[in-house]
Design a protein around this nucleic acid. Structure first.
Lengths: 236, 236
DNA sequence: GCTTGACCCTGACGCAGCGTCAAGCCTCGA
DNA sequence: TCGAGGCTTGACGCTGCGTCAGGGTCAAGC
């Protein structure tokens, strides 16, 4: 006969675990010897190893108890379920490995790939990292609120970049975020471009250059949320 | 700005988890709006997704906190550790799948393969399942107490089976466990064989047949633990 | 204006599966 | 015979949230 320590060592579990199994009724309490020590036979070892095997496979102890007094077909079915669960878990961990690798690669995993592609496109155009960060933050907020809309919008955003004036606007705004001064001639150019693009949208896309002063007053009302420049506004 | 529900949904975690991360200081508490609701920005989403990614990889939250304010090389090293851990975990689960499959195959996984081979050999010889069960139980107890000795003993046990009288003894005892009666002629044969084999061991292996009566008295003292028949005694 | 349902808030307890003391008795090898 | 190590019960601790209680808030429809 075996003591609890011998049993536990043989089954590859801790003494504490065995006692826990007793407590919850998973493993029946054995006879005690004269001094009150638990005294185990071979059946207990067989049972305990079964329990350990299932527990290591992630089966909750309650379910193990259920399995142990289930009939043969039910047991086999349970085993099938456990195997499926193990396979799923392995797949999940494989996925997790990839995610974690992305994380260390500096990729933030935070945006859908289409948006990432769009931001990469902006980077190619020459947009500053500061402004890109703003873009990204804006897209995150937008994606969080309208997850499925974003995928629809991105093609339009790509299309806008076909217009060289939009590209130029991004470049100018980008340059502005890099420099400290505000009375730069770039500011004028930016305003011009904004006005022009805003007016196009307003008047159904067919209005040539308007006088600077007239449009500036109109555009000042538009500036707070210039939807042409992306979700984050101007990222100032 | 996002509410806690929007943030949680975007990051793929529960609201409760986000609050928990606040509680333990893993995610900083954001500003509140007029009504006391938490109001999150994009940075929080980035951070939360980082946290979720690591948490799903099995990294304890305390360690995640540590990682989040570690420098670049330390972070990279931690990621390497996490990946190693994930690989190990995947391997463990693969192993677990095999073990569980064994379990459903009826294999009890409880004995070292050498012992299993020995018991299979006994089965070939024609030993009854009842007696095999006894053998197995005995070996389990022995293996539990002297795990490394067992591997040494098994070759001897195999060698004993070379002797046709030992084989016959097993068969006879086996037949006895199957039948109910005790005054069977098989009993006499079993005793004869036991006596003979026991005497051989006693007198250094060179004593011919002794008279039945003389040996029987001697053997009766040996019967309780006849070491020739395996660890479980006679498995009565 | 009022209701309704979906959110949000804090605070607290609960859960698995043991680890880890504490404080005392038992066993075994030297 | 003695000291180290093993056994006993009992109890609290840990992680990572789930879940309930008992409220306030917001947006929409009637």
């Amino acid at each position: 006969m075996l003591t609890i320590g011998q049993l536990a060592a043989y089954a590859g579990v801790t003494v504490r675990a065995v006692r826990h199994y007793h407590q919850i009724g998973l493993l029946p309490e054995p006879e005690r010897d004269a001094s009150g020590y638990r005294s185990y036979g071979a059946q207990a070892a067989v049972l305990l190893i079964k329990i350990r095997t299932l527990a290591e496979a992630g089966v909750p102890l309650g379910r193990i108890a259920w399995m142990l007094d289930a009939d043969e077909p039910a047991f086999a079915e349970a085993i099938e379920g456990i195997d499926a669960h193990l396979r799923a878990e392995i797949d999940r961990l494989e996925g997790s490995r990839k995610q974690v690798a992305q994380l260390s690669a500096g990729n933030s995993l935070v945006l859908p790939p289409q948006v990432v592609a769009y931001i990469d496109r902006l980077r190619e155009i020459g947009v500053s990292e500061r402004m890109l960060a703003g873009e990204r933050d804006g897209w995150i907020l937008v994606s969080a609120r309208w997850p499925d809309k974003v995928v629809e919008w991105i093609p339009d955003k790509f299309a806008q970049l076909e217009d060289p004036r939009v590209v130029r606007l991004y470049q100018v705004l980008s340059a502005l975020t890099e420099t400290e001064g505000t009375d730069d001639p770039l500011v004028m150019e930016a305003v011009d471009l904004l006005v022009e693009l805003a007016c196009i949208r307003d008047r159904s896309s067919t209005t040539p250059r308007t006088s600077r002063t007239r449009c500036r007053t109109r555009c000042s009302t538009i500036l707070p949320t210039p939807s042409t420049t992306g979700p984050s506004g101007c990222a100032t």
